[in-house]
Design a protein around this nucleic acid. Structure first.
Length: 939
RNA sequence: GCCGGAGUGGCGGAAUGGCAGACGCGCUGGAUUCAAAAUCCAGUUAGAGUAACAUCUAGUGCGGGUUCGACCCCCGCCUCCGGUACCA
């Protein structure tokens, strides 16, 4: 055979693998250990595969091929995340049905992936747009709809772990007697309010450009993540998923997972759990304020309690109410220890108490501010408008710890959607409150002292014995005039001052104590909040999963607010036929334009029903695809329980870091609901996660590499690379570029490099001058030399260890070293070459199969046992060891490999160079590490 | 701002306490060739030094520290990349 010609080789073996179903995976092979290796499945875009895709895909393919050779039963599937806007936007422009576009794109992607020789079991292929698939997406939605979260429930899962909190069937939701007595409709409404999937009327992010609402997570800097269209807030009835119920578990159950700490941290930050306290501030009545003075007594009672805080408390009032009373502002704070530093309060502009508290004099100003705030987009409210704005309402509330009257403002730096939508402002110890107070001239009180400040004050007190009242910081003095002054705001933990009986308490103790005291007095309570919001789950587009939900209509055809779910048997809910895919231009969903046959029906009991016309977001399909791969053809169940138990969890999941938060969080949430409802047996879907780094475009003349993008014109097309260098070279280069997880620039010259390497490997084995397939003359059937054997075994060890560490770039280096060595050998034993070809096969499977064949093995090497190394063969007789003087290299000596420290030192002292360096010096110490080095410490 | 990650030759990178720069690219020289491509061989951190070797000095973003010994560990900065942004 002539020179290395990848074209026939690659097509031959791809055909062979196809025809022989080489990578078809059997379920539940008991005698084999399982390994589930998953790629993040792609969105099949119209522009085809990007060189970023094969990076992760090659990495998993290497692991899979390697693991099969190690006797594991490997599940390695591929599918398509195929719902989404681009196909629909294309339909708007051309009238082509999104399904048609989607199928074309899938065909392109599949051809490109097959061309790269990945060892997927294509029998398991799926697309989220298949009715057979989204039937079960809808089914899972119904499970979520049928579930409420019992946060008190204690139970032990099939994994043997004890948990508090469980998603339970809605039928098990306890119904309060007053609800029950109001009739079945009231019960249904009560249940609907507690479901994990519920309809909410809260303001949402409507994106006119995309014609849909978006989740908070899909908005970046106030614009849509996709397309960068502006987003406005408006109230719309939308489906929400109660992911916040799982906040604790989503954060805590990250711990045992083999994910990078960075990604775990990102998820924890996204969930943003914080522990603090809710505290009630009573609104001051306008005139006689009997309520307020009564409250003053109560407040004093708290202070009193605090006095004997360490001597046991007597709860003296009713417990902290579940809902705040009508004349009460409830705030959430993580720093209840700063209650004595409160100088004003802020309500979010949307807060329901604003109308109540605003005085007639302030009404005009407040109304104006609220209107302005409501018109502001998120962009205006966050990024641009860093300057604090707000308006005084004219109203006051009473600080429960000291009975002081506190002015109440409204300001848009307080968000209605977080905590209670109201805050107590402590400008001395909060950056935002500080800025606000500075802007509006509100007093600033210091109630927490830093350690440094405290020490300083003690010293000064000792020296002068003058100033000792503890009031060490005020709002404005300069450091020069007052050495005790503390720079404000001081937001860290410290020691309490100006806090009555709590003075001197460290922040942590103070927090615990005051929370207890407030609770005892019925004025507050420990509370947990999440940055995470419930997941906005509906979109207004055509090309997404329809909801399996009906709305009841009254006799006039108006929705009653009551809902009915489709039965599991009636799924899937298919898309209606539509010709016109133009957006409605309003928040009215596309599906509302469907035919009446699709939209309406009358149920068996005569109730008229209208279909839900929202559709699910693209995330829905990707939330559970890893489950379906285990059993993609099951028509009676979303997954066979036995197969689920065998294959899950995913052992290795590789994909881009752009999904670090959203996809992974959503997926984990669904998985946990399914876990609670007994449909899956593991609490987490993905045991090990690795994020591949981004591949940048070719560096410019200044050596700067940028993100690949059409607009920059630096996109590398995998088709072109395969055409010029072959699939094996592309795979090898993608792995050789650098560490998998690192961002790195593409360099075509690097592809050339690995291509040349494959050519050298080819010539090492095949006689390229011969007309037919013929081994090179140097390839012999003889036994290897000791050196050849040692190099082979070193390579086996290195490549094996490197694959285990996913360190593919170094594995390839080691194979290059091997071929550099072996190519120069005049006699190359077949046995050694065969084992090397096996090492190469996970990386460059086509050429490896071909060479394996040429070396005389008739069958595929896909299941040949992975070579093992003999540690005894790795040991060299002698080693070269560096000799240092004061840590600096001065000489090298060759010693027997097993020399001990004494022998090492003796050999070093015998060395000519060493003796020269020893002249006139005093040896203080000698450090000799056998096999590593010798160091003379001299003076 | 906050939270992560990373800074090593001309370039991608290797070495996680013990010979800095493996492997590859590029470059230089040589072999082969009528010539080229391809291939093979040698060299390639910088500076000093030598006829040539030898040898010496400096060197892993910057400044300190720990250690017999630091790219590696610790402290303080700088730069770049990613995430996040009024979350009380």
């Amino acid at each position: 055979m002539p020179r290395y010609d990848f074209k026939p080789v690659e097509s031959r073996w791809q055909q062979y693998w196809d025809e022989n179903q080489t990578f078809r995976t059997e379920d539940a092979v008991s005698e084999k250990k399982k390994l589930y290796v998953l790629d993040m499945f792609p969105y099949p875009s119209g522009s085809g595969l990007h060189v970023g895709h094969p990076e992760g895909y090659t990495a998993t393919d290497i692991v899979c091929r390697y693991s099969r050779m190690n006797g594991l039963n490997v599940l390695h599937p591929m599918g398509w995340d195929a719902f989404g806007l681009p196909a629909e936007e294309h339909a708007v422009k051309t009238g082509t049905h999104p399904r048609e576009t989607t199928n074309q794109n899938i065909a392109t992607f599949k051809r490109q992936l097959k061309m790269l020789g990945f060892s997927y079991d294509w029998e398991r292929e799926l697309a989220t747009t298949d009715p057979d698939y989204y039937r079960w997406t809808q089914w899972i939605f119904l499970q979520i709809f049928d579930t409420w979260y019992d946060s008190e429930y204690e139970w032990t899962g099939p994994d043997g772990v004890k948990r508090t909190g469980k998603g339970r069937p809605i039928s098990e939701l306890p119904i309060p007697s007053e609800v029950k007595s109001s009739g079945t409709e009231a019960v249904r409404r009560y249940q609907d309010k507690h479901r994990l999937a519920y309809v909410s009327d809260a303001p949402v992010n409507w994106c006119p450009g995309l014609g849909t609402v978006l989740a908070n997570e899909e908005i970046i800097d106030g614009k849509s993540e996709r397309g960068g269209h502006p987003v406005v807030r408006m109230p719309l009835k939308q489906w929400m998923l109660r992911i916040t119920a799982y906040g604790d578990r989503l954060a805590n159950e990250l711990d045992p997972l083999t994910w990078s700490e960075a990604i775990k941290l990102m998820q924890r930050n996204w969930i943003g759990r914080s522990v603090g306290a809710e505290v009630d501030f009573k609104i001051v009545g306008d005139s006689a304020s009997g309520g307020a003075s009564a409250f003053r007594d109560q407040a004093q009672a708290v202070t009193l309690n605090a006095e004997n805080a360490h001597g046991g408390l007597t709860p003296n009032r009713s417990p902290f109410p579940k809902e705040p009373a009508a004349d009460t502002i409830r705030v959430y704070t993580t720093r209840p220890d700063t209650l004595f530093g409160v100088t004003y309060m802020v309500l979010a502009p949307e807060h329901p108490l604003v109308d109540k508290i605003t005085t007639p004099e302030q009404k005009a100003a407040v109304d104006e501010y609220r209107t302005k705030a409501s018109l502001k987009s998120d962009l205006d409210r966050t990024d641009l408008a860093k300057d604090k704005t707000g308006v005084f309402t004219g109203g006051y509330a009473i600080n429960p710890v000291n009975g002081e009257k506190v002015p109440v403002w409204i300001a848009d730096y307080v968000l209605i959607s977080y905590g209670t939508g109201a805050i107590m402002a402590v400008p001395g110890h909060d950056e935002r409150d500080y800025e606000f107070a500075k802007t509006f001239g509100i007093p600033i009180i210091c109630v927490v002292q830093s350690e440094a400040c405290l020490t300083r004050s003690r010293e000064v007190a000792k020296e002068s014995q003058a100033d000792s009242d503890g009031t060490l910081c005020d709002s404005a003095p300069s450091r020069e005039t007052n050495p005790l002054e503390q720079e404000l705001p001081f937001t860290e933990a410290g020691t309490a001052v100006n806090s009555g009986k709590y003075d001197g308490l460290p922040t942590a103790d103070f927090k615990a104590q005051i929370t207890k005291d407030l609770e005892a007095a019925g004025l507050g309570k420990e509370a947990v909040n999440y940055r995470l919001r419930d997941w906005l789950f509906s979109r207004q587009r055509y090309w997404g999963e329809p909801f399996p939900i009906w709305h009841e209509l009254d006799v006039d055809g108006n929705p009653t607010g009551l809902m009915r779910a489709d039965t599991a048997e009636s799924l899937p809910v298919l898309h209606p036929h539509m010709e016109d895919f133009k957006p409605t231009g309003t928040p009215e969903p596309m599906l509302a334009k469907a035919t009446p046959e699709w939209l309406f029906k009358t149920d068996t009991d005569g109730v008229k029903l209208k279909r839900e016309t929202n559709s699910m977001p693209q995330w829905a399909g990707s939330c559970w695809y890893y489950l379906r791969f285990c059993d993609n053809k099951n028509s009676t169940n979303f997954i066979d329980p036995a197969k689920e138990k065998y294959w899950l969890p995913v052992d290795l999941y590789i994909g881009g870091a752009e999904h670090a938060v959203l996809h992974l969080l959503y997926s984990r949430f669904w998985h946990k609901v399914l876990f609670d409802r007994g449909h899956v047996s593991t609490p987490e879907p993905f045991q090990k996660l690795v994020n591949q780094g981004m591949i940048l475009g070719e560096p410019d003349e200044n050596g700067k590499a940028e993100k690949m993008s059409k607009s920059r014109g630096n996109v590398i097309n995998p088709d072109e690379v395969v055409k010029d260098y072959g699939a094996d070279s592309l795979r090898l280069y993608e792995m050789f570029m650098g560490p998998l997880e690192q961002t790195k620039p593409w360099q075509m010259s690097g592809v050339e490099g690995v291509y040349r390497f494959l050519g050298r490997v080819w010539r090492m084995i095949v006689d390229e001058r011969a007309e037919t397939v013929k081994l090179a003359d140097a390839v012999v059937d003889a036994a290897p030399s000791d050196e050849q054997l040692r190099v082979l075994h070193k390579t086996i060890k290195a490549v094996t260890d490197d694959i285990d560490r996913l360190s593919f770039n170094t594995a390839i280096s080691r194979m290059m070293e091997f071929s550099n060595f072996m190519s120069s050998q005049e006699a190359r034993p077949k046995l050694v070459l065969s084992q090397f070809v096996q090492l190469l096969s996970p990386f460059a499977p086509h050429i490896a199969e071909e060479l394996w064949n040429v070396l005389g093995h008739p069958n595929t090497l896909a299941y040949e046992p992975w070579p093992t190394y003999d540690p005894a063969l790795l040991v060299e007789d002698s080693v070269e060891v560096p000799v240092q003087f004061n840590g600096k290299l001065r000489s090298k000596i060759v010693v027997p490999a097993n020399s001990d420290a004494a022998a090492l030192e003796a050999a070093a002292r015998a060395d000519e160079q060493v003796q020269k360096n020893l002249e006139g010096k005093t040896v203080v110490k000698v450090v000799a590490v056998p096999g590593r080095m010798v160091n003379f410490v001299v003076k």
